[in-house]
Design a protein around this nucleic acid. Structure first.
Lengths: 257, 257
DNA sequence: CGGTCTCTTGAGCAGAGTCAATGAACGTGG
DNA sequence: CCACGTTCATTGACTCTGCTCAAGAGACCG
């Protein structure tokens, strides 16, 4: 049984990436009330229309936010990785406007909204860090609109692979440029607004061209520079620089080509 | 020459819709330092890569945020209407990740980022209102991802028309369900991820079916209920209820059909 | 070992794009 | 007040990217 501190430590790490927390900030975060749960993949954490009274933080595992159209089509609007706040909008919005679902078995920490609001008010630096987190989230949404609205299938998929690579790297996950992508091709399709069949064909060509390799659900970027070009990818929208990463750190270890 | 109070009054109105401001909050907003400018249509207010030192508030006129792909394609990621904060992300993000451009001749009020940060810290209710504003923004981005990713052209365009109708109505603009849409079909196309030619065809069919009427750049919704159905539109994501609007107010005056 | 889920591949189709020409609206200067 | 240029809207003909339908192959699991 992990201690309370051990469960909230990833949250300290996350917020410390966004703003310079002092010792009191650390202590205030670790003093938060919370509950913890581990759930199976495909579990709904929040459903559209609900009024959640807590905000969740993803300790381990992956999750995604999705919305359904009346035709039954699903669009994934974001992928959350370990160390992400997954529904910070509950902090101030009453009713959830989307569904939040786990991608894999996952452990989340739930924090009462009211406690988090107090924290944001009483510790300005933490408030700032959370603001930044929410704003970066919004920036990623904007890029996804561009991705889905104006890029062709090949570019779109290369782009999202680049995004995962850098985000996982920034979160300290994945080794070199290999990363576990625990998504089915159907889920990937729902994230980029394509059909699973077409995603499959595009992945095949990327793999035939040796830009990536695939095994099971793990994808390995073999030629970062080329994939970056194919995906029309610029990391500006991830706002990694705002944090503690220099350019060298961001790109270190990614294979040229 | 309008007084200082007159220029900032719309901002008070906007924030008051998001949270219950008291007299001190009002005074604090009206005491903000600011400069004001009126610019022509198509003027860039912020360019991607810049580090703006001020946040802009749109007093009159329309604006949009857009990003360009390396192919030269443009995607509009949001439309801002009078009374909107148009780049609240400058509050805490250093480098702009998108371009901000006026759609029409517009008057904006620029507020130094530092002054706004102080305000957010010193007046918690105002901070809360701005949080909500940013979170609603993000919610709209999510819906746009769905719109562009999973809806066909007809549904997509009907949906965005519904969004404008309600947002303009909530902002106290537009009479009945008539509203001025100061966009070219090319701009509308860039907002929904289609080509101008196809937008034109879809608008024609909507107009042939008497769901809307068009004159110049003004669009009038004739059969709200039907258009809402065609556009697979649900207003939840606009989070109007969080504010001062009841259901009756939101829908009042929209023509049935 | 059968069932289910996911991946893969082919064949044919269609929604939206491209290219191109015409027309309408508007502002400007002569 | 009219001629002209520019911008935007409209329409047709044709193309193509990505979708649909369908079948088969792996992989995993109880």
């Amino acid at each position: 049984m992990p201690t309370k501190e051990a469960m909230l430590a990833p949250m300290v790490r996350k917020l410390a990436m966004r703003a310079a927390l002092d010792a009191q900030d650390h202590a205030a975060i670790l003093a938060l009330p919370f509950s913890q749960r581990t759930v199976d993949s495909s579990t709904y954490l929040v459903r559209e229309g609900e009024q959640p009274s807590r905000c969740s933080f993803l300790v381990s595992g992956y999750a995604y936010r999705q919305k359904l159209t009346s035709e039954g089509a699903r669009q994934i609007v974001s992928i959350q990785i370990p160390g992400d706040f997954i529904d910070l909008q509950n902090l101030f919005l009453g009713v959830s406007d989307h569904n939040l679902q786990t991608l894999t078995r996952a452990t989340v920490v739930d924090i009462p909204v009211l406690a988090l609001r107090d924290l944001v008010l009483s510790r300005p630096t933490i408030g700032r860090a959370m603001w930044i987190d929410a704003l970066v989230d919004a920036s990623i949404f904007r890029e996804w609109i561009v991705n889905v609205g104006r890029r062709d299938a090949r570019t779109r998929i290369a782009h999202i692979l680049c995004e995962f690579t850098l985000r996982l790297k920034a979160a300290g996950l994945g080794e070199d440029s290999r990363f576990e992508l625990p998504m089915t091709q159907e889920q990937l399709a729902d994230a980029v607004g394509l059909t699973p069949v077409h995603v499959n064909r595009v992945l095949k060509t990327l793999s035939d061209e040796k830009l990536i390799t695939r095994e099971k659900r793990s994808i390995c970027v073999k030629q970062w520079d080329t994939l970056r070009g194919v995906g029309d990818f610029s990391e500006r929208y991830l706002h990694l620089r705002g944090g503690l990463f220099s350019d060298e750190e961001v790109f270190a270890g990614l294979p040229h080509g």
